[in-house]
Computed example of a mutant assay.
Amino acid sequence: MGRMDDKVVLVTGAARGQGRSHALRLAREGAGVVALDACTTYDHIDYPLPTPADLEETARLVKADGGRIETMIADVRNSDELGAAVKLAVSSFGTLTTVCANAGIGGERGTMWNTHEEVWRTVLDVNLLGVWKTVRAAMPALIDNGGGSVILTSSLGGIRGLRHTSAYVAAKHGVVGLMRTLANEAGQYNIRVNAVLPGTTNTPLAMNKATFRLFRPDLDDPTMDDVRDTMQGLALLPTPWVEAEDITNAVLWLASDESRFVTGVELPVDGGWHAKF
């Protein structure tokens, strides 16, 4: 018996990284999964983004593991596409119980005053407006279900002022604020709302050459090995970064009935970075 046998989960940003990890584990635990990703590109975003083939690979991996999944290419900035995804969940699996609003991008690599306006708008639109639109689309189905769990992916940047990522940090702070408000508004419907706050995570969003150059500007072409010691210095525990499955473990707990009376919580998974002083 799985910990998610009676659950139906909508996961955004599911083509790779944390979203793929969430989809795989939640399906393995018995959930029906609807996996979304925009599978698109954005001007001025300086690392490779997921493709339709990546989303297909997520579905293949889930099915190979015996799981149930439906996929859709959908942009979290588009309310109509999100509404269609919610309808797909209900038509395919009978209900919707859980939302993992995980989709997000990075991109800017300089001071706030040198950030391109288009980058600012794109990062805010995907990372904050997209989370709001995802939850807004799902709330009627969660209310009809008689309750559920909403898990928003913020970041350590949702509670700390990280340099050279002003749009990302502003958006992720906004996600924490949205979580707090929604927890107060949705509790009467037996809907729990929490946020996970990943630290540096070994996924393409963080582990790319542009990020490496932020950590090691003294090198022309730094690698993961070159930034390891610097990243390790940020944490309390002996790890320079966490893995996607570490975030998934937190998401699974928040999605399951094991956390049935947990709401309004910011849960860092960052090796203790948030607590270091």
Rank of each mutant, 00 (worst) to 15 (best):
G83H: 02
A84I: 05
A84T: 12
V86M: 02
V86Q: 02
A89E: 00
V90L: 04
S91L: 06
S92C: 10
S92V: 09
F93P: 09
F93K: 08
F93G: 05
G94D: 03
G94Y: 06
T95D: 12
T95V: 08
L96N: 06
T97W: 07
T97G: 04
T97H: 09
T98K: 07
T98I: 07
V99L: 06
C100Q: 07
C100I: 14
A101T: 04
A101M: 03
G104N: 05
I105L: 11
G106Q: 11
G107C: 04
E108H: 12
G110Y: 11
T111D: 12
T111L: 14
W113Y: 14
N114W: 10
N114P: 02
H116R: 14
E118A: 09
W120P: 00
W120Y: 09
R121Q: 04
R121G: 00
T122F: 03
V123A: 06
V123H: 08
L124E: 00
L124W: 01
L124K: 00
D125S: 12
V126A: 08
L128H: 08
L128D: 04
L128F: 09
V131N: 05
V131W: 09
W132I: 15
W132L: 15
K133H: 10
K133F: 07
K133L: 15
A138G: 01
A141L: 07
A141P: 10
L142N: 06
D144Q: 13
D144F: 01
D144S: 13
N145K: 05
I151T: 08
L152G: 06
S154H: 01
L156Q: 02
L156A: 08
L156H: 01
G157S: 15
G157C: 12
G157H: 05
G157P: 01
G158P: 01
R160C: 00
G161D: 08
L162W: 13
T165N: 14
T165E: 15
T165K: 15
T165M: 15
S166M: 06
A167Y: 09
A167C: 06
Y168W: 11
A170K: 00
A170V: 04
A171S: 12
A171V: 02
K172S: 01
H173D: 01
G174S: 03
V175L: 02
V175P: 04
V175H: 04
V175W: 04
V175F: 05
V176E: 03
V176K: 03
V176A: 09
G177M: 12
G177H: 13
A183Y: 08
A183K: 13
N184Y: 01
E185N: 05
A186C: 15
A186Y: 07
G187E: 02
G187K: 10
G187Q: 05
Q188N: 03
Q188W: 00
Q188C: 02
Y189D: 04
Y189W: 10
